[in-house]
C-alpha cells in the first residue's frame, strides 16, 4: 500500500466527510453550532486541506486558506497514524486553539466513526434505523468515490487505470440519495457533488439499499447489472476503468 495515496485518501476523502456529516447529522451539527475556527492540515507530498467551522456549518477546502489552527505532519505515515486513531502529535501553530482539536474535533471524529466504522456487534442493529442507514450509505459513497479519485491520481495501479480513461464526466446517482459527478481530464480524476446535464457515462444505483450492499462488498456489480439493481450507460470504457479503481478502494480503506 502506498502511504502517500493513503494519506491523500485520509485527507481528501475521509476527513472531508466532516462537512457532510455536519449537514446530515443533527448531533454533529449541534457540536459545531458555536464554533468559529479554521483548521489546516499540511502533509508533505500529500497536500493541504482546510476545515472551516462557522455559522453552524463545516466546509472542507482542498488547498491553502486562512486558518486559525495549523497542524503540520512530518510525513504521510505520521498523518495516517493520527487518522487511524493512533497516539501521535502534529506540530501546532496557534496553541491557543488546541482546545478545539482535543474537544470538539475529537468528538466529531468519533461521531464520523460511529457512522462509518460501527462496531461489528452493533452494526446490524444500527443499520435498522433508516436515518442511520442513510447517513452510513451516503458517507460510505462519498468516501469511496473521493478515495477512488485519489487512487487514480496517485497510486501506481490507479494511474494505469486512469491512463486508459479519456476525457469525460461520469454521473454517479443513487436513486433517492445523492449524485456525484466524476470528471476525467488528462487522465486525472476529480469529484463534484450533483448532477450534470450531458454526462459521458452514467452509473445508477436503483436504490439506497443496493448502493449500501455494493459499497460494503455484499453484492457484485455484474450481478446488480443483471438484476436491474445497478445500471450503466454511456462510455463503458470509462466505466470499466472506474470499476477497477473502485475495487482498489478496499485495498486502502479495508
Amino acid at each position: 500500500m502506498d502511504m502517500v495515496t493513503k494519506a491523500k485518501i485520509n485527507l481528501f476523502a475521509v476527513l472531508r466527510n466532516l462537512q457532510d456529516l455536519c449537514t446530515m447529522d443533527p448531533v454533529a451539527a449541534d457540536m459545531i453550532k458555536n464554533e468559529n475556527i479554521s483548521v489546516q492540515f499540511k502533509v508533505p507530498n500529500v497536500g493541504i486541506g482546510t476545515l472551516r467551522f462557522a455559522d453552524g456549518k463545516c466546509t472542507f477546502v482542498r488547498g491553502k486558506g486562512p486558518a486559525s489552527l495549523k497542524l503540520w505532519f512530518t510525513s504521510p505515515e505520521h498523518f495516517n497514524t493520527m487518522i487511524d486513531g493512533g497516539k501521535t502529535i502534529p506540530i501546532f501553530i496557534n496553541v491557543f486553539k488546541v482546545g478545539f482539536l482535543l474537544n470538539t474535533f475529537m468528538k466529531l471524529a468519533d461521531r464520523m466513526a460511529y457512522f462509518l466504522k460501527p462496531p461489528a456487534d452493533k452494526k446490524a442493529e444500527l443499520l435498522k434505523d433508516p436515518e442511520y442507514f442513510k447517513i452510513n450509505t451516503i458517507l460510505t459513497a462519498y468516501t469511496a468515490f473521493n478515495a477512488m479519485a485519489e487512487i487514480a491520481n496517485s497510486d501506481k495501479i490507479g494511474k494505469a487505470c486512469a491512463y486508459r480513461m479519456f476525457d469525460g464526466v461520469i454521473l454517479m446517482e443513487i436513486k433517492g440519495g445523492p449524485s456525484l459527478n466524476i470528471t476525467v481530464k488528462d487522465h486525472l480524476l476529480s469529484v463534484g457533488v450533483g448532477k450534470v446535464k450531458l454526462p459521458t457515462a452514467t452509473m445508477t444505483f436503483n436504490s439506497m439499499e443496493f448502493a449500501h450492499k455494493l459499497l460494503n462488498g455484499e453484492a457484485s456489480t455484474f450481478g446488480g447489472m443483471g438484476s436491474g439493481d445497478f445500471g450503466l450507460s454511456g462510455a463503458v470504457a470509462l466505466l470499466e476503468q472506474m470499476g477497477k479503481l473502485l475495487n482498489l478502494v478496499s485495498v486502502y480503506l479495508g
Binding site: T221, F222, M225, G226, G228, S233, V236
Partner: peptide, 10 residues
C-alpha cells in the same frame, strides 16, 4: 453475459 456483453439496459 449482460455485464461484459454491455447489454444496456439488460
Amino acid at each position: 453475459g449482460p455485464s461484459e456483453g454491455c447489454m444496456i439496459p439488460v
